[in-house]
Design a protein around this nucleic acid. Structure first.
Lengths: 223, 223
DNA sequence: CAATCAAATAATTTCGATATTTAATTGACC
DNA sequence: GGTCAATTAAATATCGAAATTATTTGATTG
């Protein structure tokens, strides 16, 4: 079983996403982005009609996207009552952070134990890409830089990509999404102040050195 | 935050499922059952037309069900190429078992640490219900007993239901589904020979006694 | 005979409209 | 004035057909 290469390639290439081949997938991507960025706030009712207007497609693709997102946990669905953006609360966030810690700890441990050369290469590559873009797309005030967000996500998943379980990897990705959303929701009030670039470099170096005891790696960016 | 009660009630009432309120949900349930039971084998192409005939509904509910199932990992989707029942392989099974161990270990540990009285009650109730139905619906040869399957699933999830993370719980449920499928796929060749009733009772007693060291609990039924 | 290209066929995806269900509003009655 | 029932309005869920895309078939050519 050599899933490492497959997974790695997939993860690394998460960095530059290909255009969606179908309307439903395109709507899925855009809707997902709008939820993660917070431009569709938690609890917001997602009416077919409004979304049709927003994304300029028929109702079938909308409905398909919503169904996928509801299985992802970004949208809630109630039979005969339609869809809403998933709620957000302090309690949910605590649950989320806790779970993310549990799972990423395992994934990182296994990744370090099993990672091969191509994993390390992917790691270095991901880091390099991440280090070349700015956190904010503006200089003075913070405004979300989509490139950075994508590369940041790719870097984190590259770390875990050799854990040997597609299931675990997928779950970590899902929890990452959720955490991203909370970060976006919170970010308007606190412009990031840490030196994240250095943090990321340290993470990479510690990891490639197989230094599993840097356990706070997993908790980095837990909001 | 008291999510325990909500979750518990939800888990316990997984035992008797309510009728689906919408066609799409009904198709989702039936299709899911047919995949888990193996009557739709791994890799099988899922053509809209064939499913329309099989479940006697229109196009839209089928498609919605398939989209949800694909996010659940029971169905694979490729843009412009339709849907298939998720593949099954020895390698996948090993990955699955490994992941299930990791996650259930955490969930059980946390459940034992956090579980309250109502959790224990739910556990006893689930066990009682499970103990009153037979593994096989026939006496001499094995044939799947849907009641047992449902109650078995509910019992396992009741064990983990106090883990304090809906995410983790959902992941465990998902992995349980996958394992169920593999069990069904394998079961034709090996009629179960263990005394599962006793096993389950031991699991319950060890757990309510807060005996976290019975670590092989988590690996029970790992196929 | 193998390979390539084009037409025909089949399957997926999408749309517009209809039927059903839920939510809101009105109006009567206590 | 408030509550409940009936009616209206809105939204969801579903259908059947049209449009787009993949696959197969068959003919032609090197």
């Amino acid at each position: 079983m050599p899933p490492n290469d497959d997974v790695l390639i997939k993860i690394v290439d998460l960095a530059q996403r290909e255009p969606a081949g179908t309307l439903a997938s395109s709507v899925y991507d855009r809707l997902r982005g709008d939820i993660l960025s917070g431009s569709l706030p938690p609890g917001e009712k997602l009416r077919t009609e409004a979304l049709r207007a927003r994304y300029e497609v028929g109702n079938s693709p909308i409905r398909e996207a919503l169904n996928r997102l509801s299985a992802d946990g970004l949208v809630t669905r109630e039979d005969q009552k339609g869809f809403r953006v998933a709620a957000a609360s302090r309690a949910d966030l605590e649950e989320l952070v806790k779970t993310r810690c549990w799972l990423e700890q395992i994934a990182l441990r296994e990744s370090i134990a099993n990672g091969d050369d191509s994993w390390e290469e992917g790691l270095v590559l991901s880091f390099h890409r991440l280090s070349r873009v700015r956190r904010s797309s503006s200089e003075d005030h913070y405004s979300v830089n989509p490139d950075w967000e994508r590369l940041h996500r790719a870097f984190h998943l590259a770390l875990l990509s050799a854990c040997g379980s597609r299931w675990l990897l997928q779950y970590c990705a899902q929890l990452n999404d959720q955490a991203d959303r909370y970060r976006q929701l919170a970010i308007v009030v606190s412009y990031p102040r840490r030196n994240e670039l250095d943090e990321h470099e340290a993470m990479m170096k510690a990891t490639t050195a197989r230094d599993a005891d840097e356990r706070d790696i997993a908790s980095h960016g837990a909001l």
